[in-house]
């Protein structure tokens, strides 16, 4: 199904659309993430950013268009299949496994790649023990990288807000993705925390050779970290380009500040 361009891109989104009744929530959304990309998706409230994420990750099924992850077509697949294809995400309204421990949350991500079935689990076979050990090691490393290793035994719901966001990223990384979608990772953080988080996101990108797409409201932040930005408004892509182009784009200014009088 894929062509030459699709093979070089980690994520290739072409003209994806979805309608809810009469409302066109996202219209012909296109995006291409090469390896190592750190792109931003911005737009006023209700522009369709999170809907776009949900379309890519299979939470919603697109009405039209196609999505490729590492050259494999994934639109129409179930969310868990898309996760296996190498697309991981975090959520705007944090979705951790609240009753589980911090470590277990990351193990949940890690176990996607080190798998074994029910008989092995109940009989505690050698393969099972080995896989479980690998999952454990992988999860602890990621907690280390995200700087929350000291809280591994706590219940996830008891973590402070910023750490919950970090934990969500750790859990997503544990699935060993190629593409990481971050939905407002810095929401609710103070400027210093935001700065640290952005450093961390850059580090993750370099270390794991990921392509990252993030939604963020803090303009200064997006402009300083993202190499390329796509702007949505009312489901339409009104602009795409590097930060300085976006800042100068009259359509973007209009979308954020209203029409000039």
């Amino acid at each position: 199904m894929s062509d030459a361009i699709g093979d070089n891109l980690l994520l290739d989104v072409r003209d994806v659309s979805i309608r809810f009744g009469g409302l066109c929530a996202v219209n012909k959304f296109s995006l291409a993430l090469p390896p190592g990309a750190l792109y931003g998706l911005i737009g006023p409230n209700g522009a369709g950013k999170t809907t776009a994420f949900n379309l890519l990750t299979g939470v919603y099924r697109p009405d039209g268009g196609s999505v490729y992850v590492q050259g494999k077509r994934v639109d129409g697949l179930k969310p868990h299949q898309i996760a296996h294809a190498g697309l991981a995400r975090t959520f705007q309204n944090i979705r951790l496994f609240g009753e589980l421990s911090v470590l277990d949350n990351v193990r949940m991500g890690a176990q996607m790649r080190g798998w074994h079935g029910l008989p092995g689990t109940l009989l505690r076979t050698g393969r099972y023990v080995k896989a479980e050990r690998g999952i454990d090691r992988h999860a602890r490393q990621l907690l280390d990288i995200m700087g929350i290793a000291s809280r591994e035994a706590e219940q996830a719901k008891n973590l402070p807000y910023g750490d919950q966001r970090r934990l969500e990223i750790a859990r997503a990384l544990a699935t060993e993705p190629k593409v990481l979608l971050l939905d407002e990772p810095a929401a609710g953080m103070n400027p210093q925390e935001k700065h640290d988080l952005m450093q961390l996101i850059r580090l993750i990108r370099d270390r794991f050779r990921l392509a990252i797409l993030l939604i963020e409201h803090d303009m200064k932040l997006v402009m300083s970290i993202c190499e390329r930005i796509t702007v949505l408004d009312h489901g339409e892509t009104i602009a795409a380009g590097n930060p300085s182009e976006i800042q100068a784009n009259p359509k973007v200014i209009e979308a954020y500040l209203g029409e000039p009088v």
Binding site: V59, H80, A88
Partner: peptide, 9 residues
């Protein structure tokens, strides 16, 4: 939803 996002069928 989060379970699916980490690959659980």
């Amino acid at each position: 939803i989060a379970a699916q996002a980490v690959g659980v069928n």
